[in-house]
């Protein structure tokens, strides 16, 4: 058991190394990709700032709090991209028959798909989110104790697992329908963009949906309530403690779904 795990890890790091090397091949493209993503997110943050210039607050949230909320979501998303973003392309691997190859390799197919790409472009998002969080932290005059740093860490890891789980779930659907990319753009992308704003501005139905069905609320909104000490919301702040366990459970369920799909999988044939 341990031996096969170690072997899996060895394969994983080898493949990741190859993936990074291929992406570093074009230096200019590599740098522009990172800068491009950082700029895209900075653009969204600037739009938020312009929006709040005349209005000051949105349901009691001022710009710096909004930036914190946004930064927290981008931080876990960027880590998620590194490992899981290419899962949305699962349909491509299945339709083109590439996936059949993964099944005969001496590594678990799931780990193999994870290892296919190590997206260095995500460093752009990472860069943006860290800068945004530092600025927000300073502007809000926060001074966290160790316990709050632990909650923050839990939110980042849990958030990565929740969003990664979502991508795994979407890719698992492709085992039956051979379609996943479209599902990502129509289902997950809007839900993700929703989370850039305080959840309380949306209808109750949506609040419940992203709390109990697709737990995006745990990625940034609920931990932010706790970390920014916002007590006058319709959610009690202690919800934010649960991001890590919710993430672990949600990811486990999604992984289970994926393996059921894998067992069901019959090659697309060509």
């Amino acid at each position: 058991m341990l031996k096969s795990c170690l072997r899996g890890l060895k394969f994983y790091f080898y493949m990741v190394g190859v993936s990074i090397k291929t992406q570093l091949q074009y230096r200019y493209a590599f740098v522009m990709n990172i800068l491009g993503w950082a700029m895209t997110y900075a653009g969204t943050a600037i739009t938020m700032w312009v929006m709040l210039y005349s209005f000051q607050t949105i349901r009691g949230w001022m710009f710096w709090e909004l930036l914190f909320l946004f930064g927290l979501s981008v931080l876990s998303w960027s880590i998620c991209i590194i490992f899981f973003f290419h899962f949305r392309n699962m349909d491509e691997y299945i339709v083109e028959g590439t996936f059949d190859r993964f099944l005969v390799r001496p590594i678990h197919p799931f780990l193999h798909v994870v290892a296919l790409k190590f997206d260095v472009g995500a460093f752009g998002q990472l860069l943006f989110s860290i800068v945004a969080l530092i600025i927000a932290y300073a502007q809000l005059g926060l001074n966290w104790q160790l316990s709050q740093w632990l909650i923050f860490l839990g939110a980042v890891i849990g958030g990565t697992l929740i969003q990664g789980g979502m991508l795994v779930l979407i890719s698992g659907v492709a085992f039956w329908t051979t379609r996943s990319e479209r599902l990502f753009w129509t289902l997950m992308w809007p839900a993700k963009n929703l989370m850039n704003y305080p959840l309380t501005i949306f209808p109750r139905v949506i609040q419940l949906l992203v709390t109990f069905v697709l737990p995006f609320a745990f990625v940034n909104f609920l931990p932010a309530l706790l970390l920014l000490d916002k007590t006058k919301e319709s959610f009690a702040p202690y919800w934010g403690f649960f991001t890590l366990p919710v993430g672990v459970i949600f990811f486990a369920l999604c992984f289970k779904f994926w393996t059921i799909g894998l067992n069901h999988y019959k090659s697309a044939g060509s």
Binding site: Y26, M32, N33, G36, M39, G43, I46, T47, V50, M51
Partner: peptide, 22 residues
Amino acid sequence: VETGGVEDIFYFSISLFSGSVV
């Protein structure tokens, strides 16, 4: 060869300065 940056300037300008949402 790589249009990353150019593309982002375009999308940013289109979304903010056009008044599309604000």
